[in-house]
Amino acid sequence: MPHGNQHSAADWPSRRTRVELTDEEREIYAWQLDVRDFGEIGQEKLKGASVLISRVGGLGSVVAYELAAAGVGRLILAHGGSVQPSDLNRQLLMTHDWIGKPRMESIIRRLKELNPRLEIFGLQENMHEENAERLVGMADCVVDAAPMFQERLAMNDAAERQAIPVVEAAMYELEASLTVIHPPLTPRFRELVPEVPAGWQRRFPVFGAVSGTVACLAAMEVIKLLSGIGEPLRNRMLRIDLRSMHFETIHLR
C-alpha cells in the first residue's frame, strides 16, 4: 500500500463493501464474536469498513491501534511531519528509533505488526480544506483527533456534506470530551464550534494515559456505529475529568 504525498488520484481507493470472514479471522476474533448483538455479521461489517482518522498522534494512534485489533478492514490516516522526542509520551505508534523520520512510516509499520491483513491508506499531510472532501469520501466513519480547530471544522464540513458520521474526541490536561456528530440526527459541529475559538492554543498539557483513555472510548464508538450495536453518543457528549474521576453525559438537544 503506497503512502506519503506521492499518491496520484488513481491511488485513492473507493469505499469497501461487506466481506466474508476467513477461517483465520474467525479464530483471531473468536472472543469478540461472542459479544451480544455483534457476532459474525458485525465482524464482517468491520472488515468491510473504511475509517478515516485525522491525525494519528496521542489520541488517533490509540484509536488506530484498537480498530486494527478489532478487525476494521481499512484505515485512512492523515498525519504529516516527523517523529519528535516530545511525541513519545503519548503517540504510541511512534518509536524512539524513528525520531526525525516520517511519522506515517512508523504508524504503518506498527499497525502492520499487529494486523498484517489491514489495508492502510496513509497520507503524510494533515487535514485541510483542500483534501478533506476527498479523504472523507473514502470513509464510512471518521474519527476527529486533530489538535487544531481549523482541521476539525474542515473535516466536519466535508463529513456533513457527505452525511458521514464523525466521532469527535478531544482532550486537555486531565479532561476529555467525546461525542458523535451526524447531522441531521445530531447537532452540526458548527453549532458547537461556529468558528475557531479565540482562546485555544496548539500546545496543550496532557498525559498519554488521558489520550489513551478517550481514544479507547472513541474506538468503541466507531465499532458501535459500524456494526450497529449499542447506543452511540448521538446528541450526547461524554465529559471526562480524570482528576476527580468524574464522568458526565451532557445532553446536546
Binding site: R55, P147, M148, F149, A169, A170, A176, S177, P197, F204
Partner: peptide
C-alpha cells in the same frame, strides 16, 4: 462553563 477543547 466548558470551552470546547481540541487536544488530539
Amino acid at each position: 462553563i466548558m470551552p470546547m477543547i481540541s487536544g488530539g
